[in-house]
Simulated scan of single mutants.
Amino acid sequence: MRLPLYSLLGLLGLSNLVLGKALDNVFKVKKGTTLGGCDNYRTGQVNANLDAYFEEAQTIIKTASDAFGKYNTDVQVQKIAKSFFGITPNAKQDGPATTEDGNLLKHVQTWFVNLDNYAQGRSGKIPLYCNSDFLEQTTTVYTKGGTVRKNLVVSDDKAYGKMVPELKTKQYVAFWSRDLKEYYFGTPYTTKPPTYCADRRNIAVVTPMSTGKESISLCLCPAGFFNKANTLEAIDATNSDIGHALQKLETKSLSIVHELVHASEGPYETPDINAWGPLASIKPKIKGQPNPNWPGDTDKFVDMDREAYSAMDAILTAQATNPRQPTENTPENYAWAALAVYLAQNGAKMDYSTGLARPLGGPLVPPAPGGKKLRRDDGIVVAQNFTA
């Protein structure tokens, strides 16, 4: 649902309309309205309240990090950990994960702590842009000071030609940032202008710059992030309808949570869902999604007649049919798990561990899916409407 502006301001609080709070403590926010400038998106209006989105992301992350730290005594967190990360409690279901999953639990707990530290600005500031046109596709070689080296192209430069062999084969092209005096090397865009955000499906990206893993930038896209359809301006924690889908409570802040996982652990260490690989790919519209009548219909957790449309659906379907999915490094899992934790502790306090609202106190482990296995297709790219 979309909230009217007066409701939005009540939820977000008037304090969020003042510039220069938490956001500037964590990011070097590009000023102005051009070349990635964010001024238009810090006005406090609908689709333009970046400060409030970020503060909400901080709250979601802090809640989840604290909760996962209490895994052994929090049954609700155990259910969420099972659904989103495949972490199985011990046979008695009285807290600690099985020996097999103990290291996985520690990994997820550590990443949530790292994520919280990053969101609180304890790991140093990174540049934040609100459009990808701060990067200009080029073949020019620039010095560290930003001056041009004549008669040389990036792919032939000793500093980059050997470091990025994809430049030679034209798989990658160079993008230069006048602000950062650094390159980004990546696949060429076919859009006009040739930038990431020109593709309206793209939402946000953490970009590794040329000086290595420690040098990254975060970019939020005007159309994909700020004007993304079917996302809430702020958390709606009041919904208490049984069967309400978690994906319908997606907020803009959830995309920020996702991107901060990329930023805190490094973009190369945090593959998105569509990078799981051919054997783990889930077709966007395959049949097989958590049964809306569960736990009432206990015959099968996965309803073979329902279709999965979102990345969150793909996560839960994958875990239900193959709990050993490689999800412990996937930002999408952290984002949705964090929102599920938040909604279990606030507002109507519902259990979203199955992806659909049910009262707290339901079974810890969902029943096994029916005997029919889901069909898998190699090379399928997951639906475009996920939190990027």
Rank of each mutant, 00 (worst) to 15 (best):
V141L: 13
Y184F: 10
N230A: 11
P127T: 03
N239K: 10
V153C: 05
G95C: 12
L260F: 08
S7R: 08
Y53Q: 06
S255Q: 13
K82A: 14
T138M: 04
A81K: 07
E214G: 13
N333T: 15
T99H: 07
T327F: 15
V341R: 06
Q289Y: 07
D101H: 15
T147K: 12
Y334A: 11
T251A: 05
Y352P: 01
T88Q: 15
D116N: 14
A337E: 02
V164I: 15
L180D: 05
S240R: 09
T238I: 00
T238G: 03
N230M: 07
T88D: 13
F185H: 00
L8T: 08
C197P: 02
Q58W: 05
A22C: 09
A159R: 13
F175D: 04
L254K: 09
T169H: 04
K248N: 10
K372R: 08
A344G: 15
A234Q: 01
Y352C: 01
R375E: 07
A234I: 00
R200S: 07
K62W: 11
A344Q: 01
G361A: 06
Y334N: 11
L246F: 04
A338F: 11
S215I: 00
L360N: 08
G69K: 12
D351Q: 00
I256L: 15
K70A: 08
Y342E: 04
T207G: 01
T211G: 03
N322A: 06
M304K: 13
T207V: 14
R149M: 11
A311F: 01
P4G: 09
S15H: 13
W276S: 03
A383K: 00
R122Y: 08
G370D: 12
Q45D: 06
L218K: 01
T33L: 09
L11A: 07
F84A: 09
S177N: 04
A318H: 04
V141M: 07
A348E: 01
Q289D: 06
P127L: 02
T211E: 05
K162R: 10
F386V: 07
G288T: 09
Y53W: 11
Y118T: 14
F301C: 05
Q319K: 03
D24L: 07
D24S: 11
D199Q: 06
T207L: 10
N151A: 10
T321F: 01
K170C: 10
V205N: 02
F84K: 14
N47C: 06
V302A: 03
S264R: 02
T98W: 12
P367C: 03
A263R: 02
M163C: 03
T147Q: 12
A223Q: 05
K168H: 10
L17S: 13
G362M: 09
V77I: 15
T207K: 09
A308V: 04
G224I: 00
E100D: 15
N230E: 12
G379V: 01
K158R: 13
V302E: 01
Q325A: 05
W111I: 15
P295E: 03
Q76M: 15
